[in-house]
Design a protein around this nucleic acid. Structure first.
Length: 599
DNA sequence: GCCGTTTTCGGCCCGACTGTTTTCAGTCG
């Protein structure tokens, strides 16, 4: 069917269309369309970062609930979904070959340069445009163009090569990898005598699930020496740029590292500036402007008059206070309402790692003959580790025994035997209490593979989807609600099934899920596994607003993975959760009575 | 083209760096 193509249009594709609309306006008349450009760029970013499908949102009639999408863009989207095209965009794109947008993928090529090159050399074949440009650049023809030169030609050749080498592996880093990479660079920089204070900023400090590049801030009296030292980093591939107060390098593995330096007295404004997010900073500067203040990484000036008087701030707290705001935790800085709340001193007190009293999703090596993978370490060693982490309790939740290889009676016996084993081992580690749980598959029809008399051996179960991921939103929601209907099903494990940079999660009707969880005292897991970090913080935030309870688990399959709890905490913070929203901040007794069907 | 607890009209963040320029354009964050 013809209409299938645009129904299937992904958020990413639509985001690109909007980016191209903005680029076309830049090419046509940047001044005249200045604000349309901002609006479309903004919409493009927002759509790229949405956690649910734009098309689903359209079908539900909720497009106008998305910030950044107003009347005009909404009607363009409706036209796109109904007819597969937008007449207005056809006008915007007129005279601009598609190959321009392909060239823009190359770093250092923006809309204007890309358009100039396409026009000059008639590079209108989208499939070959990059190769065509590469050939031309080697002929020395670009250096002769107005506005270009020998240096820009050479840098273009390098950019094309880098782009071609990177193509296909343009994936972002997961948090642990990014943190480790950043720490190595920090260790190196700290050995320079002129480095005073130093910190990792950007999305890494905000604890985004994936990180594109590494931002580092330094306070120093001698930025020149620090930058010279920075570009001698042993694992450097090349210097991207190098200036008075900042520099960027590319290190092995294709990771970009940005460095900014300020004197100690301006360090607070530098931290604020480089932590972002971009959206947070823009909003913050708009708010400040209305109070007659102009913000930058240097400090605060009075807007308009007295442009030359700069007040500096050595800490972020002082900087925020100077605008009349309370300090905003980095995890909240996404322009999701944190600025408005901080003006009213109403920011939530976010959950901390030290608030966690136990971990309810651990796979031990106990021979449970599971449907999926077994854990690596023994129940006993896990209990010892839990004691080291000062946990009050722990939940063993191996995958359910496989139903294809066992009879119902055998499954019952395996679990009865595990109960005996656990109860015996508890004797040795008295200070850590144990919950006897299980991670049970949710079958495609929403049933559980384990019968109720066997489930009754357990304190409770985590139910998770491990197969048939591509059901419709409706069917998947029903499937999960059906599983949660079982009185023993207490926790919904890794609720969207997403794998970062690999697989999008399935769509769910969260309003229904939240409502059901509230009425039936079910909890939603925040899975700390760095590849999952599931659900996305945006969903956690919605849940928190709806008073839904969450449990932060590690889903550990080995001892050292029990330390991954901090990543779940990061996500909870990004989702605005306080310790009251997180069930495993409760004592053993409270969790016990919740599992037994109490409060 | 979006948006609103001083606004439904009149605003819209701020600066670094490179390369081509001799005062600025383009790109990036």
């Amino acid at each position: 069917m013809l209409c299938y193509d645009f129904f299937a249009m992904s958020n990413l594709e639509i985001s690109k269309i909007f980016r191209n609309v903005a680029a076309s306006y830049i090419i046509k008349n940047e001044k005249k369309f200045r604000f349309q450009i901002i609006a479309y760029q903004n919409a493009s970013e927002i759509i790229k970062n949405l956690t649910s499908s734009l098309y689903e949102t359209y079908k539900l009639g909720k497009l106008s609930e998305i910030p950044g999408i107003g009347q005009t863009i909404k009607s363009h989207l409706e036209e796109l979904f109904k007819t597969g095209k937008v007449r207005h965009f056809n006008w915007v794109f007129k005279g601009i070959p598609n190959s321009v947008f392909i060239l823009m993928e190359i770093p250092s090529l923006g809309p204007k340069k890309a358009f100039k090159l396409v026009k000059k050399f008639k590079l209108t074949n989208s499939d070959t445009v990059i190769n065509d440009l590469k050939k031309i650049s080697h002929l020395g023809k670009i250096a002769k163009m107005e506005g270009f030169g020998k240096k820009s030609e050479a840098s273009l050749i390098r950019s094309i090569n880098e782009y071609e080498n990177q193509a296909g592996k343009l994936k972002k880093m997961n948090l642990p990898y990014a943190l480790e990479t950043a720490n190595k660079i920090i260790e190196y920089l700290k050995r320079n005598e002129f480095v005073d204070q130093i910190e990792v900023l950007g999305s890494l400090r905000r604890k985004k699930e994936t990180v594109g590049d590494i931002d580092i801030a330094i306070s120093s009296k001698n930025p020149r020496s620090v930058i010279e030292y920075f570009i001698k980093y042993p694992f450097i591939e090349r210097v991207i740029e190098k200036g008075r107060v900042s520099a960027s390098i590319l290190i092995f593995g294709g990771v970009q590292v940005d460095l900014m330096i300020q004197p100690r007295e301006s360090y607070g404004s530098l931290l604020q500036h480089l932590t972002g997010s971009k959206e947070h900073n823009i909003k913050l500067r708009e708010v400040a402007l209305k109070k007659g203040l102009s913000l930058s990484e240097y400090g605060i000036r009075k807007a308009m008059k007295h442009k030359n008087i700069l007040k500096t701030y050595d800490t972020e707290k002082k900087f925020y206070n100077a605008i009349g705001l309370e300090f905003i935790p980095p995890e909240l800085r996404e322009n999701n309402g944190e600025i408005e709340l901080s003006m009213a001193n109403m920011l939530p007190k976010l959950v901390e790692l030290k608030d966690i009293k136990g971990d309810l999703h651990i796979h031990s090596s106990y021979p449970i003959e599971p449907s999926h993978d077994l854990g690596h370490d023994s129940i006993e060693s896990i209990l010892k580790k839990a004691a080291l982490l000062n946990y009050e309790y722990i939940g063993f939740s191996e995958h359910n025994p496989s139903i294809s290889k066992h009879t119902e009676k055998q499954i019952y016996e395996i679990l009865a035997k595990r109960n005996d084993f656990i109860e015996h081992k508890i004797e040795s580690i008295k200070n850590v209490r144990v919950f006897k749980l299980l991670e049970v598959d949710i079958l495609p029809n929403g049933n559980l593979p384990i019968n109720n008399s066997t489930l009754n051996l357990l304190d409770g179960v985590i139910v998770s989807v491990h197969t048939s991921f591509n059901l419709s939103r409706d069917k998947m929601t029903k499937r999960i609600l059906n599983a949660l209907l079982n009185p023993k099903a207490k926790i919904l494990g890794h609720p969207t099934g997403r794998l970062l940079e690999e697989r999008l999660g399935y769509e769910l009707d969260w309003d229904l899920i939240f409502d059901f969880c509230n009425r039936n005292k079910k909890a939603i897991e925040i899975n700390s596994w760095p590849k999952r970090l599931d659900p996305p913080p945006e969903i956690i935030k919605k849940g928190v607003e709806n008073n839904v309870k969450f449990i932060i688990n590690t889903d550990s399959h080995a001892l050292e993975q029990m330390d991954l709890m901090k990543y779940g905490i990061y996500m909870a913070k990004r989702g605005w959760a306080t310790k009251n929203d997180i069930l495993n901040c409760l004592s053993y007794n409270k969790i016990y009575s919740w599992l037994k069907g109490g409060e």
